[in-house]
Design a protein around this nucleic acid. Structure first.
Lengths: 219, 219
DNA sequence: ATTACAATCTAACGATTCTTGGATTGTTTG
DNA sequence: CAAACAATCCAAGAATCGTTAGATTGTAAT
């Protein structure tokens, strides 16, 4: 017997997507997955939650078809089911930033520099990076850099930054980025670099924001 | 005493937006409000729910700052707090259509013609409408037309279509639209028009989809 | 003042959801 | 085959949500 198709049936399906993104933990997992494919263990570790809880949330995301899986030996790799999912995360976050004052003040209190990029400044950053005028560093874990990064950026994970300071040219302006506006790794990188006398600052863009701005991602 | 700002605090705020759009009824209310400001009574009637339930859902939407209110005498008018909210609705719905097969088959079964518009066909529609090659009719209630409509469209509410058939030029191609892909008013209009011998078809765009496609809205 | 009516509020029930603990599945390695 | 380990499944309690009914607020008209 064929199920009766009512109009509310349509909204129910869209609400499945809404439900999937209605939990803070799941949003964090989506943001992490926007950096590239990851195993459940990695996700649990990076989101600082129990692996069983991570698994449960990932199940919910999979049932909403926002993520897909791939098995490799003992490991199961999760990935977003499409670039539109990362775009949705950026969209929802921007709406939240626009309308929820509490979120804006919290962001101001946390981040050292709330340098949001306009599309013109993204373009000029790209030009300066291409010409070698500035050095763009990606301070995320190397695996995330490999999965995709800003054009002309070099990988310099926060954990190795102190050891690898020699890799950086002395006089040049340094621009650091990480996973996006909620990620504080670039702030820490900037703090450390400034202590060592570098001219460093951060941008809030991650790869998803950069792509959402219409600019290309390398890998 | 200042509240401790943790990272998860940020995701919690974004999740407030997610929670707001995690209910089918609230999504329907958002879609209705995307057509223009409406009173609680109108919303309840058009969503076919009890006014008290509508009020409760609107409260949730207001607490997530997705809607705002304005009092006028006995009536309270609700509106979306910004065009980005309508854009979010379109975005979420598109992600759902992309990844949820059940939604796609339901849409195919319901709608007579699943004519989704590419950006080129939007442009060519606009040109043909401007030149008078085709007649674009807005079959939504007149108040929604007044709040904003497609360029060169004329208002011809479904309820009055039969009476006002004389308003339509005989030979010309007629394109009907309503509130968007989930709205069936344009299907009914097309059905009626074809019975009377008109060359009519529908497009799935509503004003939100049209605007999301980067094209202008008149009022 | 009294009445009418739009809208909200309060209380309460059942249905979900979140989270944790323990048990289980599936794969690799010795 | 047994041990190790990634990941999922299952069960259960606490918390939250959706819905309905009845009571209440606020404004306009008589």
């Amino acid at each position: 017997m064929k199920p009766t198709i009512t109009k509310s049936y349509l909204y129910e399906h869209v609400a499945r997507i809404g439900k999937a993104i209605s939990s803070p933990k799941r949003l964090e997992l989506i943001e992490l997955l926007a950096q590239g494919e990851k195993t459940v263990e990695t996700l649990a570790e990076q989101a600082r939650i129990d692996m069983r809880l991570a698994s449960a949330h990932l199940r919910a995301l999979r049932e909403a078809r926002l993520v897909e899986t791939r098995r490799e030996g003992k490991f199961i790799h999760y990935r977003l089911s499409g670039p539109d999912v990362a775009q949705l995360w950026v969209n929802v976050r921007e709406v939240a930033e626009e309308h929820l004052v509490e979120l804006r003040v919290a962001l101001d209190q946390m981040a050292a520099s709330p340098d949001s990029l306009s599309s013109e400044s993204r373009q000029s950053l790209l030009t300066k990076a291409r010409s070698g005028d500035i050095v763009v560093i990606d301070v995320r874990p190397e695996a995330e850099y490999t999965a995709g990064h800003l054009p002309f950026a070099r990988s310099l994970p926060l954990a190795e930054l102190e050891k690898r300071l020699a890799d950086l040219p002395a006089g040049k302006e340094i621009v650091a980025y990480c996973r996006g506006p909620f990620c504080l790794m670039s702030d820490e990188a900037v703090k450390l670099l400034r202590q060592r006398g570098y001219n460093a600052h951060k941008i809030t863009d991650g790869v998803s924001e950069w792509r959402a701005g219409g600019l290309p991602i390398e890998n």
